[in-house]
Each structure stands twice: as structure tokens, then as C-alpha cells.
Design a binder for these strands. Structure first.
Lengths: 345, 345
DNA sequence: TTGTAAGCGTTATCAC
DNA sequence: GTGATAACGCTTACAA
């Protein structure tokens, strides 16, 4: 049971240099800053590189240059399409600039996140992308100690303490609620994600409840449920709310997966959206638009945000001036929301 | 515009060694192989590490040890949930074993994949995970030259030339088609993904057409459409097929996104699944089950496959004997498929 | 434009 | 069980 371990690199700068008839340094320069070498020399080097199939040794390069050309990102989960999308946008942006992306998932556990950030710093990431502003102090300590530039995504920090890019979840959710109120709804149900350790969920819930309270609507606590992120839990939450003494005319779901689950259950219970009940879901999974006619949603431009996060770090690493905060506008997408039924509203 | 570049690591092995009153080597050992150091010494070292907030320098470690504890994966896209899922499973498996994951997307471009694999090897990945068996020869050359262990996912290689783990797409698609034939359908439509550079799409399409041919069913080419991966294209494909001279009674969609689009269009056209037409989609997005009653699907256990790919590489790196090929069984999930209408079947 | 020399921080090898 | 020493492959002053 011998551990498979590669020997030393078969072809290194020295080999290329020898074949090209130049010194090691010239080869190094030809690769990192071709403009600084005479065209004829450059050609010889490039030919040698091609002939030998030389590939730079990243570790050695990183050790000498103190840069890995690698960025790290920690997200809660890749099962959630909005984070997969964020990573996708990020990867593309970084790739366009010669950077690669280390991806880690903390599965919504702030303690795990500490370990992941540690591992990422150990790998020498040039920059770090995290989700939200809620993090273990140890993380801030490491980030500071190792001078790793970072940016929070899916975050909106009014205090401007950290660089972040994201959305105003509170406002987005408030708008959704206001839309329903404007339609005449007074009886609300709310299906939220688990708010513990999740500021996005907290902000959204606060946005809805505040708006309702502003209009003197205070839904009974039995009508406000917190469910884990899954279609099935969306179904359960909807059923639970609808089995209460009086059915609400509108249900706000704090993400689209819960919303889709709620819609499925709604249909299973013989009701229709939005005729019998108005359902609103935050986020806008493409599939929601496709399969859920009548569902009002709030779209978050996640891809643009991902790009922005990548651009921020790249600019920072280049020493360029970059804006430390960016908020993307969300969009309320209405697909036939109606007023509550006359006999109940 | 000075480029932001960190100076040398503020705290290194030497600092830890000094504080602990031991040599550098002992510290190194305490970190990599604690069992080989006396408990009392170990404790002193660990205390020093904690006090100084020491984090190992991965590049230096990699240069000396020839291992980065990093694995690379190239997938077509993260927009496709099945690949996001694969990556998720992979990441979790690797994390459990102290490895991290570099993720890159080639967006279904085999030429881009070459560049990404190059970059990954440059970063010194200890192993590589690719999707499918169809790759540019340059990739195989590099893999071989640098002795990088690799495994193909979403792949089924009957010739057993490369380590791979995946599904028998041909068989899975054939089963779906056979199921419909058994129900009495004779008039078929097929909505496929673009088969160019995509062997999974090719295999699935072949599986369907072969099975139909076996039963003397040869759908007109106007009923076989190839559409890019998106809900909207699924809609378009369905409409195109249904606008032909004679409507088929069954439509097989070669992935679930196209299937969901097809269902939406079906509904928009005033038809019902499966009463008016039977739609079958390969893959089984959770949302399909939720929003598409009547849709028959084929489930591919993607998470299990992802874990398997990670386990394979880890075993290989440890020099353990590992099985070079693994095929996961797919599952036909029937949700109310019916026979074709009497007056048409 | 090109080359020389000095690290970068760690692990492997071999002594003790 | 612990320590001295030599790599590991590259970049960055600085010199020519």
C-alpha cells in the first residue's frame, strides 16, 4: 500500500532554458512579462516550452511571488440554485482574468465556515468571498492577520464596515408585502426559512412583518412558520397555515423553493393561485416562472452580483480604486396577482 | 496604483519553533504526524501555534512535499443543477478528508476545457475530475505527462480504458422509451439537448431511437428536435413537434429542464399530461416531481456518484486498491403515465 | 535586453 | 524522539 506520490517535475524552467539557450530568468520573464524580452528570444523560449510541454509549477511560483492566482469562496450550499449561480458568475469572471476558484460549502454552519476559511488561507488564496456579513470573529481575525482582501456577497451592510455586494432583502420583502396590501389583502401567512444564523432570512422576515405592522396587520404567530430550505417543507408550511382557524388570503414565502412547495400544496388542496390565495415568493428561480402561473416573485440579479464580487477582488489585487459597496436593485415580478375574494377580504 | 501584494508570512515555522523551544522540524512533524512526537513536546508546539495564530504556508508545503491536498474538477456549467449537485457531493467528500476543490466550468467547450485542465495542473492539483469521456487528446497527454490521477464522471466507458463513474444513459433512455411503448404508444416526439460534443445527450438519444426502431417505430425527423439547455427551448421544441401534421401521443425529453419547459407549453396549449400526451423526462429535478404531476422521469443518483468520484481519487492517492469503474443504476419514476387515447393510438 | 544571486517556508533524509 | 541540512522550482532585486 504505497502512497502514490509524484517525483520531481520532469521538466522545469532549467530544462526550457537549456533548450532555448538562455538563462532561467529569461524563461521566467518570457512567461510572466513577454514584453520585456526580445521577440527573437521570446520565440525560442516559447518553442522550447511547447516542445517540452512545460507547465509552470504553481507552488514554486507562489512561494517566490507570494501570489497563487487563486480566489476562495465559501457558500452555504450548492444545492441552492442562487448560490450555484453566484459561484458560476464568479468562476467565469475570475477565469477571464487568469484566476481560479476554490469552492467550499459550510452548509449553513458558522463553525464549519471558520475551518474552511482557515483551509483556504492555508492554500494561500489571494482573496476571499463569503456570503453575508454574519461571521465568526475568528474569521475576521484571520482575514486581518493574513491581509487577505475579501468581499461579502448577498450582503447589505448599512454601516459600511466591510466591503460588500448584495441586495436590500428587507426592502425587497417589504415591497412584496406592500404589493399585496395594495391589492387589498389583510389576512397574511408567512413561510420563512430558518432565521437562525441567516441574516438574509431575518432581513426578509423583518421586511414583511414591519410592512404589515405599518398597516396595522399583525398576523397570529400560528401563521408565521419557519421551515428548512426544501420543497417539501414549503408544502408542510402552507398546509399548516391553511389548517388554522381562518385561512389567509395571501401567503408570502421568503424564498422560491418554499414558494414552489407552497404552490404545489395549494394545488393539492384544491385551491388555485391567485384566485383563492395569492402567493408571493422571494427570489426568482426560472422554473417558478415556468411552472407557477400566478406566482408573484422578487427577482434578485444574482449573476450580476457574482460578477461584481469577482471584479471587486480583482481590482483590489491590482491596486485599483474600487467601490467598497454595491447594492443591486431587486425587481418585483407580478404574474396576475389579484385582490382577495370579496366575501373574505 | 501600486499592486497590493502581501509581504512575507508574519509567522512561520521558525517563530513557532522558537516559542515552543524546539526545532523547526519538530514543529513540522507535530503538525503533519503528531503521533511521532512526544506528548509533552506536542503540547508545547500546539500552544505556540495557537498563541501565534500560525497557519501553514500551503505553497511552501506543496513545493517540499509535492502535494497540494487540492483536487480539481471541470464541469460544463453550474447552471445545470445536476452538475452543481455533483460538485456539492464532491466538495463534501473531499472536505471530510482534508482536501479542497478547485472548480472550473468549460461551458460545453472542449477547447476551453484544455485551458482549464492546464491551469489546474499548473495549480498542482493532486487529482482531477472531468465530466464524460470525450476530451481533447491534449488533456490525456497532460494527465499522463504529469501523472495526475483522474476520473471521469457522468461517464460509462464500456471499453474500460479510463477510470470512470456514471450511468448507462443509453439504457436509461431506452427504458423510458420502452415504458411508453409498453403503454401502447406508437407516435413519438423526442426533444434532445444539442448532441454535438455531448456524449450523454448522444447516448440518450441513441437509446430512445434504438428502442423505437426495435419496435418498428421510426419517428419522422420533424418530430426529433435538438434544443439548447433551457426551459424556453423545451417549450419551443414541444410546440414545434405539436405543430406538425400529426401530433404524437408521447414525447420523450432528454433532460428534465427541457421536460419542464415542454410541460409548461403543453399546459399553455390547453393539453394535459398525461391525459392528452405522455411526457417523459430524463433526470429528476426535485421540482419536476413537485410541479409536474403526471410527468414520468428517470432519476440519476448524482450525489452518490459525486461521492464515489471523490472516494476513488482519495483512495488512489493513498495507494489503496480501488475499483476503476462504477455504474450507478438509474430509476424510472412513474407518476400516472397512461396509454394513448383510443381514438388516436 | 539578459544574467547572477538570494531567498520564499516547508518537508525528506539522514544522523544522533 | 529530535535536530541539522539539503532540496523543492520559481521570482525578484540588482548587476552587467
Amino acid at each position: 500500500m504505497t502512497v502514490l506520490k509524484p517525483g520531481k517535475r520532469k521538466v522545469n524552467l532549467e530544462d526550457v532554458a537549456r533548450l532555448a539557450g538562455v538563462s532561467i530568468v529569461t524563461v521566467s520573464r518570457s512567461l510572466s512579462d513577454p514584453a520585456k524580452v526580445r521577440p527573437a528570444t521570446l520565440k525560442r523560449v516559447q518553442d522550447a516550452v511547447a516542445k517540452l510541454g512545460y507547465v509552470a509549477h504553481g507552488a514554486a511560483r507562489a512561494l517566490a511571488s507570494r501570489r497563487t492566482r487563486t480566489i476562495g469562496v465559501v457558500i452555504p450550499s450548492l444545492e441552492n440554485a442562487i448560490f450555484a449561480n453566484t459561484v458560476f458568475a464568479l468562476q467565469r469572471t475570475l477565469d477571464e482574468n487568469g484566476y481560479m476558484l476554490l469552492v467550499a460549502c459550510d452548509e449553513y454552519d458558522l463553525k464549519v465556515e471558520v475551518r474552511l476559511v482557515h483551509n483556504l488561507i492555508e492554500r494561500g488564496v489571494d482573496g476571499l468571498i463569503l456570503v453575508g456579513t454574519l461571521h465568526n470573529p475568528e474569521i475576521f481575525a484571520m482575514l486581518h492577520a493574513f491581509q487577505v482582501p475579501y468581499v461579502f456577497t448577498w450582503a447589505y451592510d448599512e454601516t459600511r464596515r466591510s466591503p460588500c455586494v448584495g441586495f436590500n432583502h428587507r426592502q425587497a420583502a417589504a415591497r412584496a408585502a406592500q404589493h399585496l396590501i395594495d391589492l387589498g389583502h389583510r389576512e397574511f401567512g408567512v413561510i420563512s426559512t430558518i432565521t437562525r444564523d441567516n441574516e438574509r432570512a431575518r432581513d426578509r422576515l423583518a421586511g414583511v412583518l414591519e410592512t404589515l405592522a405599518h398597516n396595522n396587520i399583525r398576523p397570529d404567530s400560528s401563521r408565521i412558520v419557519e421551515e428548512p430550505f426544501s420543497y417539501v417543507r414549503g408544502q408542510q408550511g402552507f398546509r399548516q397555515i391553511m389548517e388554522g382557524p381562518q385561512r389567509p388570503t395571501a401567503v408570502v414565502c421568503l424564498n422560491d423553493v418554499l414558494a414552489i412547495g407552497a404552490m404545489a400544496e395549494c394545488r393539492a388542496m384544491g385551491m388555485e393561485v391567485p384566485r383563492d390565495v395569492s402567493i408571493t415568493g422571494c427570489e426568482d428561480l426560472e422554473v417558478a416562472a415556468m411552472m407557477a402561473p400566478g406566482l408573484t416573485t422578487v427577482r434578485f440579479p444574482t449573476f450580476e452580483m457574482g460578477r461584481c464580487a469577482g471584479t471587486y477582488l480583482l481590482g483590489k489585487l491590482r491596486g485599483e480604486p474600487v467601490s467598497e459597496q454595491q447594492v443591486f436593485e431587486t425587481e418585483l415580478i407580478v404574474r396576475g396577482s389579484t385582490a382577495p375574494p370579496r366575501d373574505r377580504g
